[in-house]
């Protein structure tokens, strides 16, 4: 019977180290529990972000809608050629006769003008020059009853115009 070769201690040592080590069922369960918990956290986080994104889109859409929505009414330009005036405003039923609501701007040729959006219908108005002088619009018809009080003008906005 042939003699067996001697065992190299290093080979035996390595064989020992190579012996299997099983990961315990408990460790496996803990890994999967941690993974499931992490996945659930991620899903919650994703839902939160999704909700925030939807909210942001809604807010943005509302903002855009408000911002780009065409203003109500028809643009009507008021103008009064009074080069020597220091201040001109237009008052009327559309601004509740408020002498501070709608000032006009002086242009280079001395005409004062502004644009107001008016709803369809007839509107009575007047200019107030330098705070105390009421002036009817020379380019518009006088409003009924102007003969008996302050000279008011009349502008009529037809429905469907912009």
């Amino acid at each position: 019977m042939p003699e067996l070769p001697p065992i190299d201690p290093m080979d035996a040592f390595i064989a020992d180290l190579q012996a299997p080590v099983d990961l315990s069922a408990l460790a496996t369960a803990r890994i999967m529990a941690a993974v499931r918990a992490d996945a659930a956290r991620r899903r919650r986080r994703a839902r939160t972000w999704q909700a925030l994104a939807v909210a942001a889109v809604v807010v943005l859409a509302i903002g855009i809608a408000v911002y780009v929505r065409p203003a109500d009414g028809t643009a009507v330009q008021f103008a009064l050629p009074v080069p020597a005036a220091h201040e001109v405003v237009v008052v009327g039923d559309f601004n509740h006769w408020d002498t501070h609501a709608t000032p006009l701007r002086r242009t280079t040729n001395g005409t004062w003008q502004t644009t107001v959006r008016l709803k369809p219908g007839a509107h009575v108005y007047s200019f107030v020059v330098d705070g105390n002088r009421w002036v009817a619009d020379p380019a518009a018809p006088l409003a009924p009853g102007s003969d008996f009080g302050a000279p008011n003008s009349l502008v009529t906005v037809a429905p469907g115009t912009t």
Binding site: Q18, P20, D22, L23, T28, M32, V35
Partner: peptide
């Protein structure tokens, strides 16, 4: 499906 990877590599990692 992650358990497949744990089963596949767990023992070797443990060793």
């Amino acid at each position: 499906a992650f358990s497949i990877l744990v089963d596949r590599y767990g023992n070797r990692a443990a060793r």
